[in-house]
Computed example of a mutant assay.
Amino acid sequence: MKKLLSLSCISLFLALGSASCMKQVNKDDAKREVLIPYITKIGNNTDLFVTNMNGDKVQLTDDAFEEADPSMMPNGKILFSSKRTGTWQVYIINSDGTNLKAVTNDKGFNNYRPAIAIDGSILMVSDREVKPKIYSIDTDGKSPVKLTNSDDYYDYPSPLDDGTILYMSNTVSKWEIWKMNADGSNKKRITNMSVKPISLAAMPSYVRDTSLISPSINDDFASRRNVALNNTLISKAVFTARDTKGDLEIFRINLDGSDLRNLTNMPGVDSSPIVTRNGKIVFTSDRDGTFDVWLMDADGYNPINLTKEPYYASAR
């Protein structure tokens, strides 16, 4: 598979820009750059890519291994899971494709769905106890802590900027969205819906429908948590579910259980939402005929096809 930009070019692109790259980027643009990792699939091969919000793409991996679940870290690196050792494990890679590092290397069971928590630890799902549970682990792979203990299924840990964690569980005999503290305490069911959540992302309270409370919000954990704790707006959950016609759609609900909305409401498949740090929703859709990575506002308006690939591309 051909790289769409050279690694040397993307290094300049991510910094201050270069006339030799596809696009000139000035210093202010570079500071504001929001990168979106995603995966592509050609045949049985999946690879990791990254794009900016203009659709300028770079391929980060080119191998025979499966990759999934990419997400950005505050330091600009990318978390993802890969099956390169025979089981799903958690990895970190630079956004220019260098310095691939295994966070977990456990034989006999899978670790997947990684997400960076507000304290800098990594949240993940692990099936080391047969039924998948949510764990916290250091970025060096040490000090795993089990956050969910009941004999149920758990999935999609999604950290909020106030330090709490959203997740999905079938604890009440059906899949619902729950919330817990960073240490796994104070578990509380958020939803009691007629629709069944299939995948989940957290939308911080600083996100408004078409803008942010603070346009200067950035990836610094301290400033993000300060904003989250000092405003009275409600955080939200963004998730995939089937509508009454059976189509997969992107829904949004307040964490007090109010204001359930279908954000996409299109024929076909809209799934796998991710919320970017600037308040946009990244998702996977086949509305143009092939599966691509799309971007829309927090209220579902202004959808844009970011990837426009002739082959499968997905945000998850």
Score class of each variant (00 low, 15 high):
95 S>H: 01
20 S>D: 15
123 L>D: 00
135 Y>S: 01
122 I>C: 05
111 N>D: 15
28 D>Q: 14
40 T>E: 04
23 K>C: 08
74 P>S: 14
86 G>N: 03
116 I>T: 10
124 M>W: 00
73 M>G: 10
108 G>T: 06
22 M>Y: 14
120 G>E: 05
121 S>A: 12
103 V>N: 03
61 T>W: 11
98 T>I: 13
30 A>Y: 00
81 S>N: 12
53 M>S: 09
38 Y>L: 02
33 E>R: 15
51 T>C: 08
84 R>S: 09
24 Q>S: 13
89 Q>S: 08
62 D>V: 11
87 T>P: 01
26 N>G: 06
122 I>W: 00
65 F>N: 06
119 D>L: 03
65 F>Q: 03
115 A>H: 04
80 F>M: 05
77 K>E: 12
24 Q>H: 07
80 F>I: 01
54 N>V: 02
99 N>P: 02
68 A>I: 08
113 R>F: 13
131 K>F: 07
88 W>G: 01
87 T>R: 13
52 N>H: 02
21 C>P: 03
58 V>R: 00
35 L>I: 13
33 E>C: 09
49 F>N: 08
39 I>G: 04
135 Y>D: 01
119 D>R: 01
21 C>I: 04
98 T>R: 07
28 D>L: 13
67 E>T: 15
25 V>K: 03
55 G>A: 05
32 R>E: 11
62 D>L: 12
83 K>N: 13
62 D>K: 14
61 T>F: 12
61 T>L: 05
55 G>V: 09
103 V>C: 04
132 P>K: 06
129 E>M: 10
94 N>C: 05
115 A>W: 00
73 M>H: 08
119 D>T: 06
46 T>Q: 10
104 T>K: 00
87 T>V: 11
46 T>P: 01
122 I>H: 00
104 T>S: 05
109 F>N: 09
114 P>Y: 00
98 T>Q: 06
65 F>L: 00
127 D>V: 01
111 N>L: 06
117 A>G: 11
125 V>Y: 03
81 S>R: 06
69 D>F: 14
91 Y>T: 01
80 F>H: 07
32 R>Y: 11
85 T>Y: 03
139 T>I: 12
110 N>R: 04
136 S>R: 02
108 G>L: 08
22 M>K: 13
87 T>K: 13
133 K>C: 03
44 N>H: 14
137 I>S: 02
132 P>I: 04
28 D>H: 07
116 I>P: 00
74 P>Q: 12
134 I>M: 02
29 D>W: 09
84 R>E: 10
32 R>P: 02
50 V>M: 03
126 S>H: 01
58 V>S: 05
72 M>Y: 05
31 K>N: 10
110 N>P: 07
31 K>P: 02
125 V>Q: 06
100 L>H: 09
31 K>H: 10
85 T>A: 11
